[in-house]
Design a protein around this nucleic acid. Structure first.
Lengths: 158, 158
DNA sequence: GGAATAAATGTATAAATTTGCATTTCAAAT
DNA sequence: ATTTGAAATGCAAATTTATACATTTATTCC
C-alpha cells in the first residue's frame, strides 16, 4: 500500500504522545487524520509494531510502545542535547564520556531518558559522564547503541 | 482471599518465567497448581499487577511484567524516609539506585550513615547513586542489607 | 506487458478480555 | 457474636481484539 509506512509511523507517534485505550479510539483519531482503514488492519499494525496494552491507573488501559522503538523515537523527537559530546572511552567495563565543560549533566539526562536497556545508570560530573552498562552488555553493544543515537560522535577506540 | 497475595505472587512468577499467551492458558496452569478461580478474577489480577500483553515473534502474544513504573508506586506508597527512591539495579558488581531528580545526594547521605560494612562508599549525581560494595560482598548480601535497612524498597531483579 | 507471487486489506466471525451487578468472604468495631 | 463496611469473586453480558478466508493491490520475473 502507498501509505502503510506513513500510517505505521503515525500510529507510533500517536501512541507515544497520548494515552490511548482502545483500537476503536485510535481508529477514530486516524480517521480524522484521513487514514481509511478498519479495526482489523489496526490490530495487525499494532501487532507489527509490537505495541502492548497495559493497565493504567488513570485510563484503565493504555497502549505502550516497545522499549527500543520508544527510545529511538523520543530521542529523534527531542533531537537535542548531544551536541556537547566529545569522546567515548571504555574502562573497567564502563563507559566514560567526555563533554564540553558544563555539558555533562544535560547529556546524562538525555542518556537516562533513552530508557535503554543497555544502560544501567549514569553519573555526571562537570565535563565527564560515567555510564554503567548492564551486566552482559558488551562494549560493542554499547558502542552501537550510542553510535545509533549520537551521529557524529568521535570515538577513541573501537 | 486467604491466598490472594500468594496467588498474585505466583502469577507474577509464572509470567516472569514462561511465555504465556492468554488468560485461559495461565488459568489452566494455576488450576493445576491448586488455585481455584475464574478467568474474570484473573483479568482483575493482571490489571492489578499491571501486566501487559505484547506481540511476540515466537508466541504471537505474551504477557510481560511492568517495569520501573511499578516500582515508583511502591516506593511512594511505602512513604518512609526514602521517598525519592525509584529503583535499584546491579551492574558491574555495583548497585545503581535511581531517585527522583535532586534526591540522590540526600539518599546517598542516608546510605552512608548506615555505616554498613558492606558499603565501601557512594557517589551521588542528581538522580542516580552509584553504590560501591566492598570486595567480596555479593549482590544478594547487598540486596539483603538494603531490604533490611530500607523497608519498602522494591527491586527490579532477584 | 502480463503471468505469477507475495503483501495488504476488508468482511465477518471467533476468540479473548473486561466489566456491571449480585453474592460471598473477610475484617473491624462494638 | 453480631453488625457493618469493604474487598474479592463469580456469573453473564458487553466490549475489545485477533484471525480465517476472500479479495484487492503491489511486486517480481520472464
Amino acid at each position: 500500500m502507498k501509505n502503510r509506512n506513513e500510517r505505521l509511523m503515525e500510529i507510533r507517534r500517536l501512541i507515544g504522545n497520548r494515552n490511548i485505550s482502545s483500537q476503536e479510539e485510535l481508529l477514530k483519531i486516524l480517521e480524522k487524520q484521513g487514514y481509511e482503514m478498519t479495526q482489523a488492519t489496526l490490530s495487525r499494525d499494532l501487532k507489527y509494531l509490537k505495541v502492548a496494552k497495559m493497565p493504567d491507573n488513570q485510563a484503565g488501559y493504555v497502549y505502550i510502545l516497545p522499549d527500543k522503538e520508544k527510545v529511538v523515537e523520543e530521542a529523534e523527537l527531542s533531537g537535542k542535547g548531544l551536541n556537547g559530546l566529545i569522546s567515548l572511552d571504555f574502562a573497567q567495563g564502563m563507559a566514560i564520556l567526555k563533554t564540553l565543560p558544563g555539558h555533562a549533566s544535560s547529556i546524562a539526562y538525555t542518556l537516562d531518558n533513552l530508557d535503554a536497556y543497555e544502560i544501567a545508570g549514569t553519573i555526571a560530573g562537570d565535563d565527564t559522564i560515567l555510564l554503567i552498562p548492564r551486566d552482559g552488555v558488551s562494549q560493542s553493544d554499547l558502542a552501537n547503541l550510542l553510535k545509533l543515537r549520537m551521529p557524529g560522535l568521535a570515538q577513541n577506540n573501537e
